[in-house]
Amino acid sequence: MNGLRGELNGILAIWYRELKVFQREKSRIVASIASPVLWLVIFGGGLGSSVSIEGMSYQTFIFPGILAQSVLFSSIFFGVYIVWDRKIDFLKEVLVAPITRSSMFMGKVVGGATDSMIQSCVLLAIGAGMEKAGMLPGLHIGIGGMAWMLLILLLTAISMVSIGLIIGSYMESPEGFQLISSFLLFPLFFLSGALFPIGRLPAWLAPLTIIDPLTYSVDGLRNVILGSSQFHLAHDIGIIGTVSVLLIFAGTAAFERMKL
């Protein structure tokens, strides 16, 4: 091992590869942008004609939630690529290289988070464009809150990519991954309040929304983009930040025990 520099090079190497793959997989990029836009237009627009929340159109209200959703789905799904790496035996090339498992994990996290951040930026641009066109009145996507938005999105991506990679490190087949991750994805998504204010949920669900980390991503984004929220921004960021650090440790441990 080459010490810290060697580990950094290892992280860079894996990042380099993930970027190349992302760049080549055009269909993946298109799908990851198209599906949240469809949610916004069809789900948001369809319901939006009859519902308004806190004086906002429903479409405007769910924009932050859709943003968080797109990060959630694409980040967790990123974990399937470790299963794929094992399947195509590329994993052996990485495992036999002189880098530690934590560098390997970090390289993957950085790679997956980059994909999700690129996608988020495109969605933010689309949101800003729709607001200009008068389709999403009340949306604030400006330079002012940008740093906070990106920070929330990045921490969310890091957490969710870690979850995906942890699942992936245990799975032998992409089908198995799909099954397990969907068990996790939908509760995380629906309990986060992405589609409705969590205050309107039945009381017995309240504890579950509190332990869903995505709740704080949605709340933080809503705070910055819509100017309305349940919790303080620092509270949201603090929780997501803590969760992402914990998940990085958990993921490193999962990779440490991962076999060929």
């Binding site: 080459n2 060697g6 290892g10 190497a13 380099y16 590869r17 195509i88 590329f90 994993l91 880098i99």
Partner: peptide, 23 residues
Amino acid sequence: QDPSSDDILTGYENLKLHGMLYS
């Protein structure tokens, strides 16, 4: 024994990646 290069990358990119992994 079985191929372990990434077939979505080019030959050059596989080698570059390898060089980076070995610092």
